[in-house]
Amino acid sequence: MAEYRKLIDAEIWAFIEKTNSYYPPDTATYGVEDQRRIYDEMCAAFRVDYPVGVSAKDRDYGGVRCRHYTTGAGDALVMYFHGGGFVVGGLESHDDVCAELCAASGLDVVSVDYRMAPEHKHPAMFEDAMAATRAVFDEIGKPLVLCGDSAGGNLAAAVSHMARGTGLDIRGQVLIYPGLGGDFDKGSYIEFADAPMLTRDDIVIYKHVRLAGDEPVGDPSYAPLHDASFEGLPPTVINTAQCDPLSDDGIDYESALKAAGVPVHRVDEVGLVHGHLRARHMSARSSASFERIKQAVVALAAEQWPY
C-alpha cells in the first residue's frame, strides 16, 4: 500500500480532514438519502461565489434538467458531467466549478443533471448525458468540448464513443480522474485501495448500485475502456490523481487512444487525491491542476493542440 504521509502535502491533508468532517470515509455504506444529504452539505462547505460576469439559468435540454452558464461570448460550448459515483451530486455540487470554468474559458458551460442510481440504473445516466448533449448541439449549433470528473468523466467519454458518426461536432474531451471501467484487481486499484477520499471498496459499492443485473460486456456507454475500437475519438486530455485507485483507468485509456492514433495528453497530478477539484482554493497543487484543466478546455475548443 502507498505511504500517503510521504506523498500528500499539508494543504491536501487539510482538505482531506475538512472533507471527512462533513463526509465520513464510510459514507458510501449509508442509505442513499443520507449519502446525498451529507455530500450536498460537504460541497456547500467548499462553495465559492461566481466570478464576476457569469450568470446561470436552469432549463431542460432534451428532457434533462441542466444549468446553462454564460458570459455572453465564445464560439464553442462545454458540456459538464458531474462526479459522485452515479449516486450523489447534481447541479449544486459542481455549481461553482462550472461557473469558474465558464469565466476562465469565456465559453458557455452546460451542466447536466442526469438521472442517478439506485432509482435509475445503467443506461439511464448515459441516455440523459447523450440526450442533453444532442439537444444542446441541435439548438445552439456550436462545437462542443465534453468535460467531466470521476463518474462524469465516464459519461463524457461514453458520449464521445457513442457520438461517432452521428454528426455531433465534438472538438475534444477533458476527463478529470475518470472511472472508465478498469480492472479492480490490479494496478492502482490495489496499490491505492485504501486511498483518502475514495477507496476500492467505495468503487465496488457504486458499481453494484449502478447496475440492474450483470455487468455489460463490450458496452462503451457503460465502460469506455471496454470499447472494441478507439479510432475516430476526439482529441483528449486526461487528468489523473496520483493517490487514487482510479488512476490506472486514465493511464489505460491514454494507451488505447495512442494506439488508435488519437491525440491524447495525460497529466498525473503528483500528491493529489480523488475529488481534489474542491481543494482548488486551499491547495497550490490543486489550483495548478485546475489551471491545466481550464487551459485544456480552451485549447480544445479552439482546435489547438499545445501538447
Rank of each mutant, 00 (worst) to 15 (best):
R5S: 12
K6H: 10
D9S: 03
A10E: 13
A10D: 14
A14Q: 11
E17W: 04
K18H: 11
T19C: 08
S21R: 00
D26V: 12
E33D: 15
Q35C: 07
R36I: 11
R37Q: 11
I38N: 05
Y39P: 08
M42Y: 06
C43H: 11
C43A: 13
A44Y: 00
R47H: 09
P51W: 04
V52A: 15
G53C: 12
A56I: 08
R59N: 03
R59W: 04
G62F: 05
G63M: 02
C66I: 06
H68W: 02
H68V: 06
A73T: 15
A73S: 14
L77I: 02
V78K: 01
M79Q: 10
G85Q: 14
F86V: 11
V87N: 13
G89F: 05
L91E: 03
D95C: 12
V97T: 13
A99R: 10
A99N: 10
D108A: 12
P118D: 12
P118Q: 10
A124E: 06
F126M: 06
A129P: 14
T133H: 13
R134G: 11
V136A: 07
F137G: 08
D138I: 01
G141C: 01
L146T: 09
L146C: 11
C147L: 05
C147V: 14
D149Y: 08
S150F: 09
G153K: 14
N154V: 08
N154D: 01
L155S: 10
L155D: 07
H161C: 12
T166V: 09
G167D: 07
G167W: 02
G167N: 07
L168K: 00
L168H: 09
D169H: 05
D169I: 04
I170Q: 02
G172E: 01
L175F: 03
G179A: 13
G179V: 14
L180Q: 06
G181H: 12
G182M: 03
G187Y: 00
Y189Q: 09
Y189I: 01
I190E: 13
F192D: 14
A193H: 06
D194I: 00
D194W: 00
R200I: 01
I203W: 03
Y206F: 15
Y206V: 07
V209A: 13
V209M: 15
R210T: 13
L211R: 04
L211K: 01
V217A: 09
V217M: 06
Y222I: 00
Y222D: 01
A223Q: 10
D227F: 00
S229Q: 04
S229E: 00
S229N: 02
F230V: 03
E231P: 10
L233Q: 06
I238D: 09
P245C: 08
L246G: 09
G250H: 04
I251S: 10
Y253D: 03
Y253R: 01
K258L: 13
G261W: 02
V262I: 05
R266M: 14
R266Q: 15
V267C: 08
V270G: 00
V270W: 07
V273F: 14
H274Y: 15
L277Y: 14
R280H: 11
H281T: 15
M282R: 00
A284I: 04
R285Y: 09
S286K: 10
S286T: 13
S286V: 06
S289Q: 12
E291H: 09
K294V: 15
K294D: 13
A296C: 08
A296F: 06
A302T: 02
A302W: 01
Y307P: 05
